[in-house]
Design a protein around this nucleic acid. Structure first.
Lengths: 335, 335
DNA sequence: CGCTGGCACTGTGGCCGCCCGAGTGCCAGA
DNA sequence: TCTGGCACTCGGGCGGCCACAGTGCCAGCG
């Protein structure tokens, strides 16, 4: 497809269809865009585009709408993602800057992105890979119960009560605490269990059962900290989009709530030179998402942020918003 | 309204309308329920019920559907909430019993309730009132930065980095830690700030600036821990319910995402002798929720759990499910 | 060779009139 | 007080009609 005018026409069709939400015809096209040719010529080109599978006519003698492949070509056409406007950038910054904890950051981010794009926004919690242990605390609760708290560098503190076979003296507990700290702090979450097993062997035999229990608990917490979670906002936007087209909202909502599916999809997407990744229609595995488009990008070490919407979406703006939000997110979490 | 047969007819209308989702006529009524009278008699009673504002006819010569007031009367009629079936109870128990942390409990609960009721489920995080401080940890990060971790009894650990004017010696930090622990542990979250202010005065003068900073941080964390949050699941069920009726899904989704609104509504609802509270249609403040019904109940000290759905819902089952889930939740969080 | 104006063609959607059926209200009688 | 019967009334489905938007194709022109 190296016919400049046809590309231009495809682009115009996508834009108009996104804007007016109805099939676009040759006449409307020449009226709204300065194509410099007559509608008959446009018709010929449209026939060619249809031949190539980039657009399709819902029925004879109706305007054309882009196909999945048409959207794909359009998106690939976009050379550089335009930056956001000043006010938008400032809005992002001021909103995210005074977030309290990580939950707050996620919550604000996802709402912001939903509002910016008018789509459903999805933000994955910072990935645990690269996250190390900042601190471990072992607190005696009495009666052989100890509270184990794991504080990773990503801020997702986890804690659990462990029940020991027998109560410990305070000095024993302090020693155990010191050992655990020495073994775990600074290690990556994935490496923690192994390090703790080594620690058990080092410890005085009478302390071993307790050490094993605590080690196991810390290990479980570390594994849990690596959990993949996400937050979501703007589902109401789906209702809007879905209203006038036969994209049924129910299955999409289900897929979104089933976080596993979404998280896998996000992790599969690899951003290109422009800093975003786009999946359109059937490019998402068959299923409820096969009638939607996903625009996503990474932030931080290897987490993802993105939006889900109808294929008929404003790709340039959406891509810009997603990228901008991801950048601020990286900056905030990095600092 | 003390006419037994008319109440029975109202009940039958509600049940049939919930089941078949279409206006119910006198003939269908006598066929499906053993009313012991003819359709003409039912018609007379229906006219009376309409007079009382309990049912209404969408148009002349169509069956009747219940009004808000009709549903209300129906719900008030339900004397005792029937218990859940054995398998259902076991499902709840086994699912909730092996939840890891508080987030996991919330997540599982809300999904479970959505699945049981086929509605949108909403669970408020345990309310902080009655929650006390289990532990506070102050960890030196070097360069005058300390990590302050607050562990309340409800499991919502909060942590934040505080920056001191000047670095502390380890012994100083340990003393400060001990002071903070002594002042805060066992106190309710609300009482923590006050107690810490008193602590500052007690501390040796050189340590006071650091004590003040840490106290402020702990206080902020305690206040944050009292935050009201909720989780939600089953929004896809809304799409189903909304499909065949003119309840538009968009505004309802918006209201649900705007947690503030939902949380206030939940907190306003007071359960009755049967252990649940029901709000129907216009009983919810004007707005998007005025076309929905909310069934909720409390759990734990004063938190809420409930579902939101169309007014045309199976109230007996829904009330039973909500109550059962709330009970298990109370039990789990209490232990 | 590519572009253009013109023309015949074709589904879609709105509109109208029609009829059928479900369900009602009312009345007279048991 | 209940019942059977009857006339009435909308709503919705069906078919025919027309106007419109937009197409494909063709012949002519630069």
């Amino acid at each position: 497809m190296n016919h400049p005018r046809r590309l231009q026409i495809l682009q115009a069709i996508v834009e108009d269809y996104v804007h007016f939400r109805e099939p676009v015809g040759s006449k409307a096209l020449v009226e709204r865009h300065r194509l410099g040719v007559s509608s008959a010529t446009v018709r010929n080109d449209m026939a060619a585009l249809e031949e190539e599978g980039l657009i399709t006519a819902p029925h004879t003698s109706s305007g054309r709408i882009p196909t999945d492949k048409g959207y794909r070509t359009f998106v690939d056409q976009i050379a550089a993602v335009k930056p956001l406007s000043g006010p938008e950038r400032r809005a992002i910054q001021s909103l995210l800057d005074d977030a309290a904890d990580i939950d707050d950051v996620m919550e604000r981010t996802v709402r912001l992105l939903a509002q910016l794009t008018h789509q459903v926004a999805v933000v994955q919690y910072p990935h645990a890979s690269g996250v190390t242990v900042r601190h471990v605390e072992v607190v005696d609760l009495g009666a052989g119960r100890v509270l184990v708290v794991l504080i990773p560098t990503n801020g997702r503190v986890a804690q659990r009560v462990a029940v020991l076979r027998a109560p410990l003296e305070e000095t024993q507990l302090l020693e155990l605490r010191a050992r655990v700290l020495a073994a775990a702090v600074g290690r990556s979450l994935a490496a923690v269990p192994e390090a703790l097993v080594a620690m058990i062997a080092d410890v005085a035999p009478p302390l071993r059962p307790a050490a094993a229990t605590v080690a196991e608990t810390v290990g479980a917490l570390a594994a849990g900290g690596a959990e993949h979670r996400m937050v979501m906002a703007g589902t109401a936007n789906l209702a809007r989009s879905t209203g006038d087209f036969h994209l049924s909202i129910g299955p999409v909502l289900e897929a979104l709530e089933e976080q596993v599916v979404m998280l896998r999809l996000l992790s599969e997407m690899e951003q290109d030179a422009r800093g975003v990744a786009v999946r359109i229609g059937a490019e998402n595995a068959a299923g409820p998402l096969s009638e939607t488009a996903v625009v996503a990008t990474g932030y931080g070490p290897q987490s993802k942020v993105g939006v889900v919407g109808p294929m008929r979406m404003d790709y340039p703006s959406t891509m810009a918003a997603v990228r901008a939000v991801a950048r601020y997110l990286s900056r905030i979490l990095g600092g």
